[in-house]
């Protein structure tokens, strides 16, 4: 790129590298939270589990999607 290559490539590479790292980290934290949350529901007593899954759409959703993946 007429002598500007190093500047152009380094700035593009840097940007996308940082983006990739942040994406990976955010995703990892999300997965960890989902897993922990599903586990916590699993550990509840039968009645509590039932009420939680019935009252909270979010909880039932995470719980079912997590159980599917195992």
């Amino acid at each position: 790129m007429n002598g500007y290559g190093i500047f152009v490539w380094s700035s593009f590479l840097l940007t996308f590298l940082v983006c990739a790292v942040v994406y990976y980290k955010t995703r990892k934290t999300l997965k960890k939270y989902e897993k922990d949350f599903a586990k916590e529901i699993e550990d509840l007593s039968v009645e509590q589990k039932k009420t939680v899954l019935e009252t909270s759409k979010v909880a039932s959703k995470i719980f079912s999607s997590y159980n599917k993946t195992i």
């Binding site: 995703r27 934290t29 939270y33 949350f37």
Partner: peptide, 16 residues
Amino acid sequence: LMKYKTEIIRIKKKNL
């Protein structure tokens, strides 16, 4: 969106 989802789960966990 991913971060927001994480935050929602964090709140739900607290409620649990």
